[in-house]
Amino acid sequence: MAEADRRPLVAGPDGGAFGAVLGRAIWAVRAYCFIAAMWVRSTMAYRTSFAIMLAANFATTALDFAAIMIMFGQVDALGGFTLPEVAFLYGTSAVAFGLSDLLLGSAERVGRRVRDGTMDVLLTRPVPVLSQLAADRFALRRLGRIVQGSLVLGWAVSRLELEWTAGRVALLASMVLCGTVIFGCVFVVGGAFQFWAQDASEVQNAFTYGGTTLLQYPPTVFGRELVRGVTFVVPLAFVNWLPALRVLGRDDPLGLPDGLDLAAPAVALLCCAVAGAAWRAGLRSYRSTGS
């Protein structure tokens, strides 16, 4: 690898510690983009196969919303929420999770790489391990979930009887962005956990795939203890539940302080710090296969 490509890893004489961190972050993003682009080119070499897989991903995820539609064929409201309101929850959760799954979903393969020894290969390259792992086998077919969720979200926005002020629009954009970051951090923490428990991918899936399914339904249909758990333990409620209550003008079932439903950006930053610390701890604990 050329020396110019390595340069972001080293701080300049005037950059200091901040310059070093910024340089490593830029290099990590560049490396991720290089690897992802390679897999995209590989995928597009078989366009018909890609189109079929994309359609299958779209159809499979659409079945989740079809189940909600069937449910509303029998009831007028679910936990006090109308169909457009539930569709709003569904859309925000599906889009945020779909983006994080597209960008970081491959992090769930840590346990497999630890078991078969291919993690050692990643460590020998002058590229951040997380960038390599997250971009590995970049699955463009996952766009199907994002497109399907976006269509449901667009339909919900058009059917909700709300005045879409600049504040509501900004909060909706924040929900998608912060939700993507929070779900991405859950992927990274779950991957880090697999350095110690190599067969824990299903545990991770309970918080990622299970989490997005949970958030597609109103918090009022779940017990208060569960709502507290996804608010204060694994903060998935900040993906859409809490900010959506403000957008929809709904009361908080937990009676939390005013303003907490606007804390998603701060929670996302805190999740990034926790995920970074967990990943570094997991990587330091790795002792190679068979050791």
Results as ranks from 00 to 15, higher is better:
residue 197 A to R: 14
residue 197 A to I: 04
residue 197 A to H: 10
residue 198 Q to D: 02
residue 199 D to V: 06
residue 200 A to E: 05
residue 201 S to D: 13
residue 203 V to A: 14
residue 204 Q to H: 10
residue 209 Y to M: 12
residue 209 Y to G: 08
residue 209 Y to T: 06
residue 210 G to F: 05
residue 211 G to W: 02
residue 212 T to C: 01
residue 213 T to P: 00
residue 214 L to C: 05
residue 215 L to M: 13
residue 215 L to R: 07
residue 219 P to A: 05
residue 221 V to C: 08
residue 221 V to L: 04
residue 222 F to R: 11
residue 223 G to V: 05
residue 224 R to S: 15
residue 225 E to I: 08
residue 225 E to Q: 06
residue 231 T to P: 01
residue 232 F to Y: 15
residue 232 F to M: 05
residue 232 F to P: 00
residue 233 V to D: 05
residue 235 P to D: 03
residue 239 V to D: 04
residue 241 W to A: 08
residue 242 L to G: 03
residue 244 A to G: 09
residue 245 L to W: 01
residue 246 R to V: 08
residue 246 R to H: 14
residue 247 V to P: 13
residue 253 P to L: 11
residue 253 P to I: 14
residue 254 L to M: 14
residue 255 G to Y: 10
residue 255 G to K: 10
residue 256 L to Q: 13
residue 257 P to R: 00
residue 257 P to H: 12
residue 258 D to M: 09
residue 258 D to P: 08
residue 258 D to C: 01
residue 258 D to I: 07
residue 259 G to F: 10
residue 260 L to Y: 10
residue 264 A to S: 15
residue 265 P to I: 03
residue 267 V to N: 11
residue 267 V to Q: 05
residue 268 A to V: 09
residue 271 C to S: 10
residue 271 C to T: 00
residue 273 A to M: 09
residue 273 A to L: 15
residue 274 V to G: 01
residue 276 G to K: 13
residue 278 A to P: 06
residue 279 W to G: 06
residue 279 W to K: 04
residue 282 G to C: 09
residue 282 G to H: 11
residue 283 L to P: 04
residue 287 R to F: 02
residue 288 S to Y: 08
residue 288 S to A: 10
residue 289 T to F: 03
residue 290 G to M: 01
residue 290 G to E: 04
